[in-house]
Design a protein around this nucleic acid. Structure first.
Length: 355
DNA sequence: TCTGGGGTCCTAGGACCC
DNA sequence: TCTGGGGTCCTAGGACCC
């Protein structure tokens, strides 16, 4: 599609996990809900309802802390299969409006064309999602993905923001730089060292300064994004790059049998998902987080790609044997599969001794 | 009872090849 | 004796996103 004909809608389900629990349990919007792991198991908040957010609760906050802020909140453990079912219905409703790129369980871009940059389209999308699922979405519509995403985020919940063509830079100018995709706490702090706080400030930094400070790729994207420029297309299909499974123990562990058993269980889970996706892994990665929160990752490449649970487990266990400092208790173990190849492409290769 | 789990992308440095 | 660079692959770590 020609750049000048583009229009992108970004839709983000409001507090999705908490909203679904409210629907399923018949709870009103005034009830503070926290979805996430148990505080005694070092759980964190996956989603806080808007009522809970008023007490200062938010995603990624330790559940123990969230419950101290809002003791009357109802906590529910996540039900991912249920949320995935709602997600399918949301995505299917959105897909009626154009080619769709699903970014996560609760967020998607839709290519709606230049004529779709309108409040009428935004209202239509919100209404259909509400009819089909009972969920509200916050919607942003703009000329490109970057600006539509920021727009979907400035008014929540149940928001609708349309940025007319040509108004991208003016729309971003007063906003804090960390509204931009890819600007997190570290980048925000380094930009603040330059006196840069808003997107308007960022526009004043020369490209050379940004590249020297953040590297070629990040520097260039900061330069473009501050101006509302983004020509990345809506991509309807992504190839999976890695599959991993990890677990945090309720208490730090030095107990070898339990650690080996966990490596085996995680490896089984990874292998099952490799098989389900029809892919093989060429590299196995072991991830350890020590009690002091230090994170270590070590990987090993295989002679032949695999989806065999015992090959993955033995490789991860070997990495563990070599790399685990046994004086240090372990908080988290993860097993990952990377450098994935389609199973059929590998099987079609001739064996070395053939012919 | 501070700090989950599943991902993506980028960078730097070393190995290796020409 | 001194000492190339470009390109690719791989690994480890870090920033970031939902």
């Amino acid at each position: 599609m020609d750049v000048d004909d583009r229009g992108v809608l970004c839709a983000d389900v409001d507090a999705m996990f908490a909203s679904i629990e409210a629907i399923e349990r018949g709870l009103g919007p005034e009830v503070p809900i926290l979805v996430g792991g148990a505080p005694e198991e070092r759980g964190v908040v996956s989603t806080a309802s808007y009522a809970a957010r008023r007490f200062g609760c938010h995603s990624a906050m330790p559940m123990a802390q969230a419950l101290r802020l809002c003791p009357q909140a109802l906590r529910f453990p996540p039900r991912h299969a249920l949320y995935a079912e709602y997600s399918r219905r949301v995505m299917s409703a959105l897909a009626a409006f154009g080619p769709l790129e699903q970014m996560s369980i609760d967020e998607a871009f839709v290519e709606v064309g230049r004529s779709g940059i309108s409040e009428a389209l935004g209202r239509a999308v919100k209404e259909i999602v509400r009819q089909e699922t009972g969920l509200t979405v916050s919607v942003g519509i703009a000329r490109n993905k970057l600006v539509s995403k920021v727009a979907s985020d400035v008014q929540k919940p149940d928001g609708l923001t349309v940025v007319p063509v040509g108004q991208e830079a003016a729309f971003l100018a007063p906003l804090s730089v960390d509204r931009l995709e890819g600007v997190g706490p570290k980048t925000r702090a380094r930009l603040a060292d330059f006196g840069v706080h808003t997107c308007a400030d960022l526009v004043r930094l020369p490209l050379e300064t940004l590249v020297a400070t953040f590297g070629r790729a990040v520097g260039q994207s900061l330069y473009d994004h501050a101006r509302g420029c983004d020509d990345s297309p809506v991509v309807t299909h992504h190839n999976l790059k890695q599959i991993s499974q990890e677990t945090t123990f309720a208490r730090d562990l030095l107990d070898r049998p339990r650690l080996w058993a966990t490596v085996r269980a995680l490896s089984n889970g990874v292998a099952r998902r490799l098989q389900a996706h029809g892919v093989l892994a060429r590299t196995v990665t072991l991830k350890l987080r020590y009690a002091d929160f230090q994170l270590v990752s070590r990987s090993a490449s295989l002679v032949a790609p695999t989806d065999d649970p015992s090959v993955i487990a033995n490789t991860a266990a070997a990495l563990m044997r070599v790399n685990w400092d046994r004086r240090r208790a372990i908080r988290l173990i993860g097993v990952g599969a990377t450098r994935l190849v389609p199973a059929e492409s590998w099987l079609q290769l001739p064996l070395p001794l053939d012919g």
